[in-house]
């Protein structure tokens, strides 16, 4: 009985807290403060059409670097906790094969999904999308391969190399900003010329950084899926 009453009291108190928040919200009718600055100066400052990309990559670049680091730590923790014991080769249990449709369809679809992921993160500064979405698309292509083929294994050396190299270049680009522009320009995207507004080769280093983030997130999520899948005895 007491195990029901205490949660009920807690949830009701959270309800009243949220009610208090709810009654004090006034809907926005105008951009204010920092958002207004970004909306007015984002295009001329950074040359990116997609303002969310401009904020994620440049204005709040340090947060994104920290976030990629958190993702890396979570992936490492999962790999550490679920490390596989070496098994005898002979004792592989029989597994049910995936259906014919899934096997054939995945062969056709996996390259297309991978290309779509690359398209998303290369066009991150022009259209909706970016490194995180493109990385997730690439990871779902790997997931499709896992579902279609029981014996499919990812090459951990290649994945680890791609992941660490893209992370390293991300930090190097950030430090180049410190060296070449000025002391408070870590991860500034204006290392390269801004180019013509709306073209694919524009917005300074934003496409490069988002490509690196896309590769890193894609390989990391794929490794997380691979570790969670394990051997499925």
């Amino acid at each position: 009985m007491i195990k029901r009453i205490i949660p009920a009291i807690l949830v009701i108190s959270i309800f009243f807290m949220l009610l208090k928040v709810m009654t004090n919200i006034t809907p926005k009718y105008d951009l204010t403060g920092v958002s207004k600055t970004y909306a007015e100066q984002g295009a001329s400052d950074l040359g990116a059409m997609n303002l969310v990309t401009a904020i994620v990559v440049t204005y709040r670049g340090l947060d994104t670097l920290g976030e990629v680091a958190v993702l890396f730590m979570a992936g490492t923790g999962i790999a550490l906790l679920l490390r596989r014991k070496k098994k005898k080769k002979g004792s592989v249990a029989k597994k049910r094969e995936a259906s014919e449709i899934l096997q054939t369809g995945s062969k056709l679809l996996v390259p297309i999904i991978m290309m779509f992921g690359a398209y998303i993160f290369i066009n991150g500064h022009l259209s909706p999308g970016g490194g995180f979405q493109g990385g997730a698309a690439i990871a779902s292509a790997v997931m499709l391969m896992f579902l279609a083929d029981n014996s499919f294994k990812i090459n951990h050396k290649v994945f680890g190399l791609i992941e660490s190299l893209s992370g390293m270049f991300y930090v190097i680009i950030g430090i180049l900003g410190l060296v070449m522009i000025g002391a408070d320009h870590f991860l500034d995207s204006r290392l390269l010329p801004l180019g013509e507004f709306g073209k694919i080769l524009s917005a300074g280093t934003i496409p490069i950084i988002y490509t690196l983030v896309g590769l890193k997130v894609g390989t990391e999520l794929a490794s997380i899926i691979d570790n969670m899948k394990g051997d499925l005895e």
Binding site: V52, I120, G130, Q133, A136, M143, I224
Partner: peptide, 17 residues
């Protein structure tokens, strides 16, 4: 942007994990 992330990660990868 958020819609793409949520559809790919929240509804796809998270369910599989």
């Amino acid at each position: 942007d958020v819609a793409m992330t949520e559809a790919a990660i929240g509804a796809g990868l998270s369910t599989l994990i």
